[in-house]
Design a protein around this nucleic acid. Structure first.
Length: 887
RNA sequence: GGGCGGUUAGCUCAGCUGGGAGAGCAUCGGCCUUACAAGCCGAGGGUCACAGGUUCGAGCCCUGUACCGCCCACCA
């Protein structure tokens, strides 16, 4: 690609994006480096579900990671971004089960092994979707290191961890009440249950005393559970029921007499203050059952269908049973009343089926000791959380954490490495299948059928992907990882568990920083959902506006907050920015395409260069500082806005216009200087922008003069003290102020843009006068001024447009063109404003307490302000006087 | 019930340790000025939700109120 040519007029992003991504892949530019003596920077991607399709949250997540990865790679760090996918137990099993259903089969028709084979087939065929979509986003992952939570290495890590935790007594098997999804046939963790407010009914049932002397009314939203009632609970101090515990209750529809127990959990104010207790089907009741040693009667099977304990209701679905029970109770006079009732119903987060609390044998992790380590690490700032508003939430969740139910009754996942000896009942937990029982020597061993919660394997992701439990060079170089970037909604599902596992197993944090990005909502702040139809499809954005524009938008939106309201129009706006950059580069290319790239060297020491060059170098230096600070502090929106502001409004609007005179002029020295600085600044812009907009920057870069390899490996700019120049900043401020002033006068007076005018400046300061004089040609050309007069003093003609710039008066004679009334109104408004300010400032300066307490600098500033306001007020009066003469 | 966040220009949002209110988009006026009309130049627009307080000084700190949103725990 050494032939240099003018850039085409339009930027064709679609072609450019595929061409460069292919090129990067071929050249393996994304590959990790592990060289001695360099800093390390590593990120593991939050593995998207293998069933996933790229949504806007992924797009944001991906962009921010790629931004940091590219930045650090350009800083020269040993950098790796490890990609991969999550096997997503229930989600994936559901997808394949649906596929089977369309063939009229269930997984049971296939059997476990064949079914799992089928899932692997599905994964081979369809599992790459989201990976390819990440590539379209421009993700510079080290794709040769792509991992999958079910692949061999990671499975080994999973078994290793399970065995270690079991041996330490941190994993146990127990009977427990769990959230059961009758559709997915599995237990769900507490945080996998979503509580939706639902319109339901509250049924008030009559429970007669066992001796027939009275009755108690109990209320329930799930009347069918009464079949499993083994007690009625009342508050110990509830006088209404004193002595009832000696009598008991005759449970309707059954022939059972159940006890009345006294328990503080019961709220006297609710309903009648009597609570039916179903220990096998309600979490709170389960706790009460434990306290009072109550019998647990399970009345449903795993499908949510009533079992033999339900007597004549056996075989009914739980909801059909509810209807039947209600009708029977009513018929037999046990139904007091039914009320409409809104309450929270727990639903499976995967399939939205109503969850059934029920008891079963499950595996658990004792998380308390692990959680303590995580909390300590956060308290010691070994892990920092951004934005810091999440600390409180993190601590309170960790304080209230319950043991983690890790077993799931599905087939797709890491099968629990535990075997039971059928001869002697010995439980064996091991990383590999044992041949014989360690106790009795029998070979009749059966493995657990449950698999592990998907989050178990993802909790190991930061080190399992680096080769743990083996001692690898990758682990040594890249663990702990630098930063974890993820959405806050999985702070507890995933982030906290990675902390626990990393700290416990490697005795080291899994990452130094956690950056929790916002949730992307639609432009009205509503959650995006398919049913609402307000989903913004990232791929559509890419097709329509290009990946770079889309990435820039996401970056610009990524302030540290909780939500981002996404508006497609913004993407359109940033596409214009890409276009602007493209055209600026085109302009530069017209002048420099045949130059030696070494021309940038003139920028090395700007002291002998003309003011505009000194200024733009000073400004880009300031921008570099801003951008670096913003990147290091995860203030992504500031990164975008600094570069945007500089590129468009300083580089394009002012600098390029300013140097046109030199570029098109005859002075060879001036022309060469302009070309050199132009190329230098453009290169710096491209490099700084590259992490956000990789494609367009690479494309332009490749066409700039000289042999060039990828921009991806260029050094990210550093602060350059030689470029810092406050005098140049101030001088340019003044000149730009003068130009704007003349333009304002022209525009206000409706002078045609091509009409030539004369302008005058009253300037008492000799240095400023010299400055303006020196650049009068540029001022004239940028304002279409024919003659510019600069005088130390004088009077402003009555019929002149007039603007004050600092302590300079700029005016343009405009015979008959002045809108006298309009100008007077404007001056009146200005007068009011100045007055108001002046009163405030003078008040302050007369306040002794202010003079005593405020820092010297602030006082001086206020004094200067007073002087300036007074001058402006005087000039305002003069202007008004002049205009009145024209009335 | 507990906790957290938000309220700044018509819209979407910035605003660092308290020291003269900003951006983008939209609006209005004028321009095809040889990189860009996907553009250029210019203009208008804000009691920083409300009420108190601290302070010489508050968009920023404190207290309270209102509205919006989220999270956790849920009363069967």
């Amino acid at each position: 690609m050494s032939e240099k040519y003018d850039l085409p007029k339009a930027y064709e992003f679609a072609e450019v994006e595929t061409r460069w991504y292919d090129h990067w892949m071929e050249q393996k530019t994304f590959a990790a480096t592990m060289e001695e003596g360099r800093d390390s920077f590593s990120i593991v991607i939050p593995p998207p579900n293998v069933t996933g399709v790229l949504h806007i949250g992924h797009a944001l997540n991906c962009t921010l990671q790629d931004l940091l990865i590219r930045y650090h790679r350009m800083k020269g760090d040993n950098t790796v971004w490890i990609p991969g996918t999550d096997h997503a137990g229930i989600a994936t099993q559901n997808v394949v089960e649906r596929q089977l259903a369309s063939e009229g089969k269930t997984r049971h028709d296939l059997g476990r092994d064949k079914f799992i084979e089928r899932v692997w087939d599905w994964r081979e065929e369809k599992g790459g979707t989201i990976i390819n979509q990440l590539k379209r986003m421009g993700a510079s992952c080290d794709w040769d290191r792509e991992r999958f939570t079910m692949d061999e290495g990671l499975s080994k890590a999973v078994r290793e961890v399970f065995v270690r935790l079991f041996d330490e007594g941190l994993i146990y098997k127990g009977d427990y009440i769990v959230n059961w999804c009758p559709r997915c046939h599995t237990a769900l963790a507490d945080d996998e249950v979503e509580h939706d407010p639902t319109e339901g009914k509250l049924y008030h049932l009559r429970y007669p005393y066992a001796d027939g002397s009275g009755e108690v009314i109990v209320a329930t939203t799930r009347p069918e559970t009464m079949l499993g009632d083994t007690a009625v609970a009342v508050h110990p101090e509830d006088e209404r029921y004193t002595g009832l515990e000696k009598i008991g209750i005759r449970l309707p529809l059954t022939d059972r007499v159940i006890p009345v127990v006294l328990d503080h959990h019961v709220q006297r104010e609710f309903g009648t203050g009597a609570l039916k207790v179903t220990p096998a089907h309600d979490r709170d009741d389960y706790e009460i059952g434990l306290r009072h040693d109550l019998e647990r009667i399970k009345i449903m099977d795993d499908h949510g269908v009533m079992n033999e304990n339900a007597g004549k209701y056996k075989g009914l679905d739980r909801f059909a049973c509810r209807r039947q029970i209600v009708s029977d109770l009513k018929e037999q006079g046990f139904l007091e009343k039914i009320e409409d009732y809104q309450h929270a119903v727990g639903k499976c987060y995967r399939c939205a089926t109503v969850v059934e609390p029920t008891t079963s044998k499950q595996w658990f992790v004792s998380v308390r000791p692990l959680a303590d380590k995580a909390v300590a690490a956060v308290r010691d700032e070994r892990i920092k959380i951004y934005p810091n508003t999440w600390y409180n939430t993190f601590y309170s969740w960790m304080d209230n954490i319950r043991d983690w139910c890790i077993s799931r009754q599905i087939w797709w996942g890491h099968r629990i490495p535990a075997w039971t000896c059928e001869e002697c009942g010995k439980l064996i937990v091991a990383t590999r299948a044992p041949d014989v029982c360690s106790k009795c020597g029998s070979s009749n061993l059966t493995q657990e059928t449950d698999v592990l919660d998907t989050w178990f394997s993802s909790a190991l992701w930061p080190f399992s992907t680096l080769g743990w439990p083996d001692d690898t060079r990758e682990l040594e170089t890249f663990y702990p990882t630098s930063v974890l970037i993820t959405s806050f909604d999985i702070l507890f599902f995933w982030v906290a568990r990675m902390m626990m596992m990393g700290l416990h197993l490697l005795d080291e944090v899994p990452f130094h920083d956690v950056y929790l990005h916002a949730l992307v909502r639609d432009k009205h702040g509503k959650k995006m959902s398919k049913s609402t139809g307000n989903v913004i499809d990232p791929l559509k954005m890419i097709d329509q506006f290009g990946t770079d524009a889309f990435r820039f938008t996401l970056t610009a939106f990524a302030a540290q907050g909780r939500e981002i309201k996404m508006d497609e129009e913004r993407v359109e706006g940033y596409r214009r920015f890409i276009n602007k950059l493209w055209n600026a580069a085109r302009f530069a290319q017209m002048h420099i395409k045949d130059s030696d790239p070494a021309i940038v060297e003139v920028a090395g020491d700007p002291s002998s260069l003309a003011l505009p060059h000194q200024w733009i170098l000073s400004r880009i230096n300031a921008t570099v500082q801003e951008v670096r600070a913003a990147l290091d502090g995860y203030n992504f929106n500031d990164v975008a806005s600094s570069i945007y502001q500089f590129t468009w409004h300083e580089f394009c609007d002012w600098y390029l216009e300013w140097i046109k005179g030199d570029l098109y002029g005859d002075d060879e020295q001036a022309r060469n200087n302009a070309k050199g600085v132009l190329l230098c600044v453009l290169e710096n812009i491209l490099i700084m922008l590259h992490p956000i907009t990789p494609f367009v920057t690479e494309e332009i870069w490749s066409q700039l003069p000289g042999e060039r390899s990828t921009i991806m490996l260029e050094k990210f700019p550093k602060e350059n003290s030689q470029w810092h120049n406050e005098n140049a900043d101030q001088a340019m401020e003044l000149l730009m102020g003068v130009i704007s002033a003349i333009r304002t006068i022209r525009s206000e007076a409706d002078v045609h843009p091509t009409a030539k005018i004369q302008a005058s400046i009253l300037c008492a300061d000799a240095d400023k006068e010299a400055l303006i004089h020196k650049f009068s040609a540029a001022i004239c050309s940028m304002t279409r001024t024919e003659e510019l007069h600069i005088m130390p003093s004088g009077t402003v003609p009555d019929d002149a447009g007039h603007v004050l710039v600092e302590d300079l008066e700029v005016f343009v004679p405009l015979k008959g063109l002045i809108d006298v009334e309009g100008e007077l109104e404007k001056l009146a408004r200005e007068h009011k404003k100045i007055d108001k300010e002046l009163i405030r400032v003078i008040g302050k300066l007369r306040n002794q307490k202010f003079l005593d307490n405020a820092p010297e600098a602030v006082i001086l500033k206020e004094k200067a302000k007073q002087k300036e306001l007074e001058t402006r007020l005087a000039k305002n009066a003069e202007s008004k006087a002049r205009l009145r003469k024209l009335q």
